[in-house]
Amino acid sequence: MATLSVFITAFVLVSATNICLAKEFIVGDESGWTKGYDYKAWAKDKVFNVGDKLVFHYPVGAHNVFKVNATGFQNCITSPTDQALTTGNDIVFLATPGKKWYICGVGLHCESGGQKLAIAVQFPQVAPSPSPSC
């Protein structure tokens, strides 16, 4: 019973620490989510952790964002159109670790415009503080 209590306490502390340390990434920085941008280079030196957010900025109607699997990413295959993010200020919360793939489903933006992003999300490598506060 004491072990379970220690585990729960540790989990709560780590979770609170992850939320406090979460980062918000503007995809493409000042260029935003657009055709002709090198998203592979943009993501190369960034560390994405569980709890972080991706923000996709673009003119409404000009682009969209689809979360896809590896095959969809490689072949620019979107899911049903009702699953597209379309606000122009789309926020994606990175809730789980692993590879994540995003593409634009407008026209040939993914295929010929290179409008696609692949990232790896990990658990933060931070020791929890005894009293988390943001």
Results as ranks from 00 to 15, higher is better:
6 V>D: 10
7 F>T: 06
7 F>E: 15
9 T>N: 09
9 T>P: 00
10 A>D: 12
11 F>A: 13
11 F>Y: 13
11 F>E: 05
12 V>C: 15
12 V>I: 11
13 L>G: 09
14 V>A: 08
14 V>P: 01
15 S>M: 14
16 A>E: 05
16 A>G: 12
18 N>G: 03
18 N>Q: 07
19 I>S: 05
21 L>G: 13
21 L>S: 12
23 K>Y: 10
23 K>H: 07
26 I>L: 05
26 I>M: 09
28 G>S: 01
28 G>F: 00
30 E>L: 15
31 S>P: 00
31 S>R: 09
32 G>L: 01
32 G>I: 00
34 T>N: 13
34 T>L: 04
35 K>G: 06
36 G>D: 15
37 Y>T: 01
37 Y>L: 05
37 Y>W: 11
38 D>C: 03
38 D>L: 01
38 D>W: 03
39 Y>L: 08
40 K>R: 06
41 A>T: 09
42 W>F: 11
42 W>Y: 14
43 A>W: 03
44 K>E: 12
45 D>A: 06
45 D>T: 05
45 D>C: 03
46 K>E: 14
47 V>F: 02
47 V>H: 15
47 V>G: 03
47 V>L: 15
48 F>L: 06
48 F>Y: 10
50 V>M: 02
50 V>G: 04
51 G>S: 05
51 G>C: 11
52 D>H: 11
52 D>I: 03
53 K>L: 07
54 L>V: 15
55 V>H: 00
57 H>G: 00
57 H>I: 11
59 P>Q: 10
59 P>I: 08
60 V>W: 06
60 V>C: 11
60 V>K: 09
61 G>D: 06
61 G>H: 14
62 A>Y: 13
64 N>I: 07
65 V>G: 05
66 F>I: 04
66 F>K: 01
68 V>K: 02
68 V>H: 02
69 N>C: 10
69 N>E: 07
69 N>V: 05
71 T>N: 08
73 F>H: 12
73 F>C: 02
74 Q>C: 05
76 C>W: 04
77 I>K: 09
77 I>A: 07
77 I>N: 07
79 S>A: 05
79 S>T: 14
81 T>N: 11
83 Q>E: 09
84 A>D: 09
84 A>P: 08
84 A>E: 14
86 T>V: 13
87 T>E: 08
87 T>S: 15
87 T>K: 14
88 G>N: 08
88 G>C: 04
89 N>Y: 14
94 L>A: 11
94 L>T: 07
95 A>P: 01
96 T>R: 14
98 G>H: 05
99 K>R: 07
99 K>L: 11
100 K>N: 11
101 W>P: 01
101 W>T: 00
102 Y>L: 06
103 I>V: 09
103 I>L: 02
104 C>A: 11
104 C>M: 05
104 C>D: 15
104 C>S: 07
104 C>N: 06
105 G>H: 01
106 V>Q: 08
106 V>N: 06
106 V>R: 12
108 L>F: 06
109 H>S: 08
111 E>M: 12
111 E>W: 02
111 E>S: 13
111 E>T: 13
113 G>T: 06
114 G>L: 12
114 G>I: 08
